[in-house]
Design a protein around this nucleic acid. Structure first.
Lengths: 144, 144
DNA sequence: GTAATTTAGTTGATATATCAACTTTATATG
DNA sequence: CATATAAAGTTGATATATCAACTAAATTAC
């Protein structure tokens, strides 16, 4: 009855995302010394959706708002993002890429696209759709 | 061109494993106060393969041997595992479940089986095979 | 309009993962 | 056999994630 983790679907899912993260991080490291996969993810997200608040960002990337605060602080400290206070709600911040951030963004986005297409090489559109559908069922099952 | 993480396959993979882990942890917490998903994973692995060394365990669960050391130490501290020195190689340890550990194991294994079957409910054998195959291609692609 | 509640974000304590340096034992090489 | 190298496991420093408690601003309710 015992199965090596290798044969277990959940282990494989875990492994897949870890391999992809490692691979993606390696690619980022070629161009940056101070950006992690998670930072890149929220950086691109914020740049494309400047209206999101940190709670919402957290929900989208499936992390706590406390973690979001800290990732944003790192992006700010490293000069990629700047914060200003929201005009009508002074509890919030407006997050915008700095000039350095804008340049980095372009680069990041092209690296991300390349990463994704390498990781999905040889996997047909149909298989990708199929994968998504199955994962969505799985997610739903875990939330009963 | 920008896609919300939701539509991106890698995000979905990440999300799926996080949801499963959260779900699994909740189930563990009903029966135990001191066992994490990762600890359960290596505990079952060790119990079924007492001959593995910590480096190998790490490779199988995709973690550093340093992390394995610390997880084993927790399992030991909480009374689930006992260590004795390997007869022929004194650098190694033999890891065996304690009596408490044996009882916990049975319980854990049945929880794990239940968790998996709930998470996979409604997903056909064929879809599961398909998922595995696709993830394996993805893993291979990340290792070029 | 003031008090109570909610919301946005931060911070401290804690847990766990990793890396690199280390100890101890085993093995290989001359 | 002595020494060099490799292997098993540990440990300290560091990074990041989470939880819960917190501050400050906004909203609701009286």
């Amino acid at each position: 009855m015992f199965k090596l983790p290798n044969e277990v679907i959940f282990y494989l899912i875990e492994r897949a995302i870890k391999e992809y993260r490692q691979f993606a991080q390696k690619q980022f490291n070629k161009a940056f010394t101070d950006i992690t996969v998670d930072q890149a993810m929220i950086f691109v997200l914020i740049a494309n959706n400047p209206n999101l608040n940190q709670e919402e960002i957290g929900q989208i990337v499936f992390k706590e708002k406390a973690s979001v605060t800290r990732m944003i602080e790192l992006l700010r400290k490293n000069g990629y993002l700047k914060r200003s206070i929201h005009e009508t709600d002074r509890r919030r911040f407006i997050l915008l890429p700095t000039d350095k951030g804008e340049i980095a963004l372009e680069n990041l986005i092209s690296i991300i696209e390349k990463n994704r297409s390498i990781a999905l090489e040889g996997i047909s559109e149909e298989d990708q759709m199929h994968l998504k559908t199955t994962l969505q069922s799985l997610i739903k099952n875990c939330n009963q």
